[in-house]
Design a protein around this nucleic acid. Structure first.
Length: 473
RNA sequence: GCGCCUCUAGCUCAACGGCAGAGCAACGGACUCUUAAUCCGCAGGUUGGGGGUUCGAAUCCCCCGAGGCGCACCA
């Protein structure tokens, strides 16, 4: 077996690449240096020309030209047969061509991997969206944007973890397979455990398990993980997506909103170096403090008359119809107010804006507001018309929680497939005592979309869910 | 889920009721400073799948499949 330093390409490749970089402005065209370097990467272009050959070697850190010459380059004949997409390792001296291009005059080289499949049109590449989505490895190499966004995503994840570790949060992992789907209102995926002969659900949220950890005495926890919702696919929805949830004992929603502001601004600054964003040509600033307004205030402002959860039902219904909504009999005042907000207010928000005090009817896991039992101590952070995060003072009273679950269960009976189910294990845990706690959920994919100014969620997911290709297609 | 649009060579696209074509890639050849190298040659297809109308269908109609856009649902 060859010793490492006898291989034609550098180990690791990246270190030697940097040694090549300093020269480009200093050397004169035609100059040959004594600097010996090794490079490795994938060929983007090959230009054989008789007893010379040029190839553009590409890797994430840049591009370098390989310059092969008959009599200098080993196996010159074979070098000219290299093709776009082949992986090549090469070693030689740094030179400048007569045209002034910094190059490696190849002495030894090796084919590291053969591209048996074409990489599309030399100039235009592959632009068929379907092919690119189904073969993201091709997309990654052909399109810079794809790679940049995935790098950004990784930086966001790292910055989130760092920010939370710095604040004493413990990262935990809770089950993905749930006997009862809970923690959110959404339709779940169902699967089956053979040995237990038991239906299990892919989690729609880690919330209930995380709060059970707080009951157990872990006062600051977070989980950064995949959740699954059996709903439609759209530019903003993938069936599996990444959510950050964190729980902070001895805190209420106001404290948590402050933390959320810090966290979002800190991560944005870590990744982009600034807190301002361009979204659809508009500039907004994620630096705290964010504007705060209650849902009732926002709805009243938008509709030009005072409305809240205590408004007479017919008044709310009429307002809903006025916006083209079709109120269902099962909707209470809280649901009506939420619908008004989502229709008339949310899409118009540039933000960042913290929407406060959601109706208790639509917040089955949030603590009742200290000033109005029909509301909860809850906030949603909205940026560019989309919800980025959702936080609230947690409901810690097991009696109230049982009543909320039962209300949800009734809605489920009435046909609402997204409504929750009574979770006895969770109630059992609450009966042990959950200290005052505030909890936050943040859609990581949405956050990355915002920072990358991406209009489709699939841009920020390496392998978005697609229907399998039809056999005949 | 619903509506509209798209699907032709490996890739990017023409042909729009009358012999399926081009550029790039591939393959063979020429070329010692190229930058989407250039030049010569050669090959490449159940026109997404199935059915129908027609003397004749890539083209018109129907069904199916996948994708895109919009709406709905949400994070």
């Amino acid at each position: 077996m060859a010793r490492q330093d006898e291989r034609p390409w550098p180990i690791p490749p990246r270190r030697q690449r940097r040694r090549l970089a300093p020269g480009p402005s200093t050397g004169a065209p035609g100059e040959e240096t004594d600097t010996d370097v090794g490079v490795a990467g994938r060929l983007r272009l090959v230009r054989p020309q008789g007893r010379l050959a040029f190839a553009t070697l590409d890797d994430p850190s840049g591009q370098v030209q390989l310059f092969a010459r008959d009599g200098v380059t080993a196996d010159f004949e074979q070098f000219g047969k290299l093709a776009i997409g082949d992986w090549v390792g090469a070693r030689g001296r740094v030179v400048k061509t007569r045209r002034g291009e910094l190059s490696v005059l190849v002495e030894r080289w090796e084919l590291l991997a053969l591209a048996r499949r074409g990489f599309g049109d030399k100039w235009r590449g592959v632009s068929d969206t379907e092919t690119l989505l189904r073969h993201r490895e091709l997309d990654l190499w052909v399109g810079d944007r794809t790679r940049e966004v995935l790098v950004l995503r990784s930086q966001v994840l790292a910055a989130l973890r760092r920010a939370l570790w710095d604040r004493g949060f413990l990262e935990v992992e809770t089950p993905v397979l749930h006997p009862i789907p809970g923690g959110a209102t959404a339709r779940p995926f169902v699967t089956h455990h053979r040995a237990l002969d038991l239906d299990l659900y892919l989690r729609i949220a880690p919330e209930l398990y995380l709060k059970r950890l707080v009951v157990g005495g872990l006062e600051r926890v977070f989980e950064l993980g995949r959740v699954f919702r059996n709903e439609g696919i759209s530019p903003r929805h993938n069936p599996e997506f990444t959510m950050l949830e964190l729980y902070l004992a001895y805190a209420d929603y106001q404290d948590l909103l402050g933390l959320t502001e810090q966290l979002v601004a800190e991560v944005t600054r870590a990744v982009l170096g600034r807190t301002t964003l361009e979204v659809h040509g508009r500039t907004l600033d994620l630096a705290p403090p964010w504007r705060r307004a209650t849902m009732a205030e926002l709805v009243s402002e938008a509709l030009g008359r005072p409305l809240d959860v205590h408004s007479p039902r017919p008044v709310l219904e009429e307002a809903a119809r006025g916006l083209g909504l079709v109120p269902e009999p099962s909707w209470g005042p809280g649901k009506l107010l939420l619908e008004l907000y989502e229709k008339a207010v949310e899409p118009t928000i540039v933000g960042p804006l913290a929407v406060l005090d959601h109706p208790v009817e639509v917040s089955p896991l949030a603590r009742r507001h200290r000033e109005d039992p029909e509301l909860t101590e809850r906030f949603e952070v909205v940026v560019a018309g989309r919800e980025l995060a959702n936080g609230f003072s947690e409901l810690t009273d097991p009696e109230d929680q049982r009543a909320r679950f039962e209300a949800q269960a009734r809605a489920r009976e009435a046909g609402d497939e997204e409504a929750m189910v009574v979770d006895e294990d969770y109630l059992w845990a609450l009966e042990l005592g959950l200290p005052p706690t505030a909890g936050l959920g943040l859609g990581v994919d949405r956050f990355v979309m915002l920072l990358a100014d991406a209009s489709h969620i699939r841009e920020v997911i390496a392998f978005p869910t697609l229907r399998p290709e039809a056999p005949g297609a």
